[in-house]
C-alpha cells in the first residue's frame, strides 16, 4: 500500500490551488490538504477490503455460471439448507441461554454495592480481555470426556456426559464468549430504569411478579433486544469455537463456507453464503441501531469490539 499512495497524492495536489476560491483561500486549501491525510488509509481499505468484497459478490453471481443459482442453492441444496437451519437453531439456543443468564446477572449488578458492581463488571469483561484462541483451547480441555466439567458433574452424580463435539458443549463454550454482549446493553438499560415506577406499581397493590412483568420487563426490553440481536449476529458467523469444540459432521455456516473454499474451491457457493450472511448481519444490526436510537441505549460499541473477536 505504501507503493500505491504517493502517486495519488501527487496527482491530486496540483489541482488544489486552482479549485480553492479566493476569499476563503487559505482555509479551504488547508482543509483540503488535511483531507489528503485520509487518502492512504482509504486506499488500503478500498483496495484490500472493498474490492475483495465486491469481487466475492461478483463471483457469487458469475461462477460457475451467470445467474442467481448460488443463492437459490442455499435454500434448495439439502446439505446447505441443513447447515443454514442448524446455524439458525444454534444461534437461537445460544441467544436464549445468554439472555437467561445475562438478565438476572445484569439485574444483580444494579442492586449490589459499588464495589461488587465493579467486580461483576470486571468478570463479565474477561472475554473482551483474553485471547479467543486460548479460551477455546481451554474449553476443549475442560469439555473432554475425562475433563474438569465431567469431573464436577460426576461429583454431583451426573454423567459422564459427552460434551466435546455435541450441541451442549458448543452452546456452553459459545455462550461464554457471547455473554458480555448481552450483559452490557441489558445492564445499561436497567441502570436507566426509574425504580420509582416499580415502587408505584407495588404501592398501588401490584404483586412483585406483576410489577416486574408489567413495568420492569417492558422498560428493560431495549437492552434485551439489542443484546439478543448482537449474540444472534455473532453466533451466525462464528468460526473458531464451533470448529474446535463442535464436530465436523455438525458444522455451522462459517465452517461450511470454509469447506466450500478450501476443499471444494467453490467460490460461487461460498460467495453467495458469505453475502447472505453479511446481508442478514447488516439488517439485524440496522434494526438494533434503529431501536437503540429511538430508545436511547448505547450498545453499538459492543458490536464494534465483537467483529474483532469472532
Amino acid at each position: 500500500m505504501a507503493v500505491s499512495t504517493p502517486p495519488r497524492r501527487a496527482s491530486r495536489a496540483p489541482t488544489e490551488p486552482g479549485s480553492a476560491r479566493p476569499p476563503g483561500r487559505g482555509r479551504g486549501l488547508l482543509a483540503r490538504a488535511t483531507l489528503l491525510l485520509a487518502v492512504p488509509a482509504v486506499v488500503v481499505l478500498v483496495v484490500f477490503f472493498v474490492v475483495p468484497a465486491l469481487r466475492l459478490l461478483w463471483l457469487s453471481v458469475t461462477t460457475p455460471e451467470p445467474g442467481l443459482g448460488n443463492y437459490t442453492a442455499i435454500l434448495t441444496d439439502e446439505v446447505s439448507l441443513t447447515v443454514v437451519l442448524r446455524t439458525l437453531g444454534m444461534a437461537a439456543i445460544v441467544t436464549v441461554v445468554c439472555l437467561l443468564v445475562a438478565y438476572p446477572y445484569a439485574y444483580l449488578m444494579t442492586i449490589v454495592s459499588g464495589r461488587w458492581r465493579a467486580v461483576l463488571l470486571a468478570v463479565v469483561l474477561i472475554p473482551f480481555w483474553t485471547s479467543l484462541m486460548a479460551r477455546t483451547f481451554a474449553w476443549v480441555v475442560l469439555l473432554q470426556d475425562n475433563g474438569l466439567v465431567n469431573t464436577v458433574l460426576g461429583a454431583v452424580g451426573i454423567g459422564p456426559l459427552r460434551m466435546l463435539g455435541t450441541t451442549a458443549g458448543v452452546t456452553v463454550a459459545m455462550a461464554q464468549v457471547m455473554l458480555p454482549f448481552v450483559v452490557l446493553p441489558v445492564y445499561t438499560t436497567m441502570r436507566g430504569i426509574d425504580r420509582k415506577l416499580v415502587d408505584a406499581a407495588l404501592s398501588l397493590g401490584a404483586r412483585p411478579v406483576a410489577a416486574f412483568r408489567q413495568v420492569y420487563l417492558p422498560l428493560s426490553f431495549p437492552g434485551v433486544a439489542a443484546g439478543a440481536t448482537l449474540v444472534m449476529v455473532l453466533s451466525l458467523g462464528f468460526y473458531v469455537t464451533p470448529s474446535l469444540v463442535g464436530s465436523p459432521q455438525q458444522s455451522m455456516l462459517a465452517q461450511f463456507i470454509s469447506v466450500q473454499v478450501n476443499q471444494l474451491v467453490n467460490f460461487g457457493a461460498a460467495g453467495a453464503l458469505a453475502v447472505a450472511l453479511l446481508v442478514v448481519t447488516l439488517v439485524l444490526l440496522g434494526g438494533v441501531a434503529l431501536l437503540t436510537r429511538t430508545r436511547g441505549t448505547r450498545s453499538s460499541a459492543g458490536a464494534g469490539v465483537a467483529g474483532g473477536l469472532v
Binding site: F49, A53, L56, I257, S258, A274, T281, A303, V305, V310
Partner: peptide, 11 residues
C-alpha cells in the same frame, strides 16, 4: 469491525 470475520476471510 461489523462484517463477520468469515466473510472478510473468504473475500
Amino acid at each position: 469491525l461489523i462484517v463477520p470475520g468469515i466473510v472478510v476471510a473468504v473475500a
